[in-house]
Every structure is written in structure tokens, then in C-alpha cells.
């Protein structure tokens, strides 16, 4: 069973979102998503300072047999990306919620976070998909 931490918010496209104490947003992909994709071999991250609207594709994670777009969960400006993934994309497999984060952004409207799924709703979503 995939790990779905309670304190995070989720998207239907399997990104997780964490609101940091300074109001910034950290984004990654869920444990369930990394299981589906398999061994990561490459990550293409957005450029810092780029701005995205929620739902835009802004990054790509690549395993041997699949490449998956990452959609920006919240509108905002990218402030930093996880440079360590360039040399160790497998971190997404081993530690998706912590050192395997993808990028951070400053949200345009932090209220958008509330519209995302909570852990319970996300668990339901993946249960349905498995069906």
C-alpha cells in the first residue's frame, strides 16, 4: 500500500503539495506515482523565475519505459528546483516526500491549496484507479 502522509495536499495527477512556514509551496510526486512509473532515470525541471498557471505542465519525470508530465498544482513563480535530482533521480523512488521533492514556488493565491485533495480523498482516488 502506498504511503500517503496526512499533512500534505494532493492533485488528481499525483503531485503532492506542502505549504512551508514561510508560505512557499513545495511540490513532488506521490509514492503511488513513483511506484507506477518505476525506476527514475531522468528529471527535467522548470527554470527558476518561470511562472506557471495551475494545470500547466512544467516538468517531466522519466523512467525507462515511461515519461510523465508534472503539472503545476498551484499558480505561481518557481523559486528553486531540486538540483540533486540531476545526478540521483532515484531519490524520487526512495524518498518521494522529502529529499525527492521537485521544485518550490511562491503561490499567487495561497487559497488555491485548499482546493486540492486531502489525504483521505487522494487515497480514495488511488483505490478507484486500482479497481
Amino acid at each position: 500500500m502506498s504511503n500517503v502522509p496526512n499533512e500534505l495536499k494532493y492533485t488528481k495527477t499525483h503531485e503532492w503539495v506542502r505549504t512551508e512556514s514561510d508560505g512557499s509551496i513545495t511540490v513532488g510526486i506521490t509514492d503511488h506515482a513513483q511506484e507506477l512509473l518505476g525506476d527514475m532515470v531522468f528529471v527535467e525541471l522548470p527554470e527558476t523565475d518561470a511562472t506557471y498557471t495551475s494545470g500547466d505542465d512544467c516538468a517531466v519525470v522519466e523512467s525507462v519505459k515511461a515519461a510523465s508530465d508534472i503539472y503545476c498544482p498551484i499558480s505561481g513563480e518557481i523559486t528553486s528546483v531540486n538540483e540533486d535530482l540531476a545526478d540521483a533521480p532515484e531519490t524520487i523512488n526512495t524518498d518521494p516526500y522529502d529529499t525527492g521533492w521537485l521544485f518550490k514556488l511562491t503561490p499567487e493565491d495561497s487559497g488555491e491549496v485548499d482546493e486540492l485533495l486531502d489525504a483521505e480523498a487522494y487515497l480514495e482516488l488511488i483505490a478507484e484507479e486500482d479497481h
Binding site: 532515470v41 522519466e62 523512467s63 525507462v64 519505459k65 515511461a66 515519461a67
Partner: peptide, 12 residues
């Protein structure tokens, strides 16, 4: 690097 190719990336 097959993930670049049409049979996986399709329209992208």
C-alpha cells in the same frame, strides 16, 4: 532514452 520516442511519449 526510449522515453523520448513516439511509442512512449506519443503526442509529446
Amino acid at each position: 532514452l526510449q522515453a523520448r520516442e513516439q511509442h512512449i511519449r506519443r503526442s509529446k
